[in-house]
Design a protein around this nucleic acid. Structure first.
Lengths: 114, 114
DNA sequence: CTGAATCCCATGCGATACTG
DNA sequence: CAGTATCGCATGGGATTCAG
């Protein structure tokens, strides 16, 4: 990796990291890694999220091929979301991230006690 | 993990993720995972970064115990940075993130060819 | 060489209201 | 139920300038 490539788009890590480096991305992906959900189910679980943020996040993740959207033709509407085959590759990332997060928080607790 | 805990600070993953979810954090950590560096060395490698952003990033990472700062008493100043023992725990995260990034970019190339 | 202080702009985020 | 449109605020990022 060239030094000059950090932000000209040729650094894969930095480039794709921006897909998940947004406020609600990790929680959404984490939930979808547990199974498929309907729009309102996700909204209920993601306490505090607004329609606009949920919609934007889902559309963005879908545009990057990480999740799929399936609209059933019913009234009232019924839309389901889930991880794509490609999207499943994010699961190990979530696991490692969670392991690190717990370790880091444990460390902070110890330090704050000094 | 409780649904209501995503953003009240009790979700370790989300909480600590914010440490690295900033523009220059990953490149800085990646470099420091390769060895220790002086301020100006980091600045030279991190093509495009400004003093203020490098300084802020380093101070922030240091405040979370992920990197150390060593100031040699010389003139002109000589300051060195490196990963702490705790900071080394980020390395597996970087590796998994890189693997995922490459895979995701490969996927995008295939999809765009359709 | 290694920063800090100021000021400004782009962007993310979200409250509110509306729709089929 | 599953969204969209608007508008505004908060925050991050950075150009510029100055300093020990």
């Amino acid at each position: 990796m060239e030094s000059s490539d950090w932000y000209d788009g040729s650094c894969d890590l930095v480039h794709t990291f921006n897909y998940i480096c947004k406020k609600w991305r990790l929680p959404i992906l984490w939930y979808l890694s547990q199974g498929n959900f309907r729009y309102y189910e996700l909204k209920r679980q993601l306490y505090g999220i607004t329609n606009i943020m949920l919609t934007r996040s889902l559309q963005d993740l879908e545009s990057h091929g990480m999740i799929w959207r399936k609209q059933h033709s019913e009234t009232p509407p019924h839309v389901e979301y889930g991880l794509t085959e490609q999207g499943n590759h994010i699961i190990p990332v979530l696991e490692v991230l969670e392991a690190w997060g717990e370790m880091q928080v444990e460390y902070e607790k110890r330090v704050d006690c000094n």
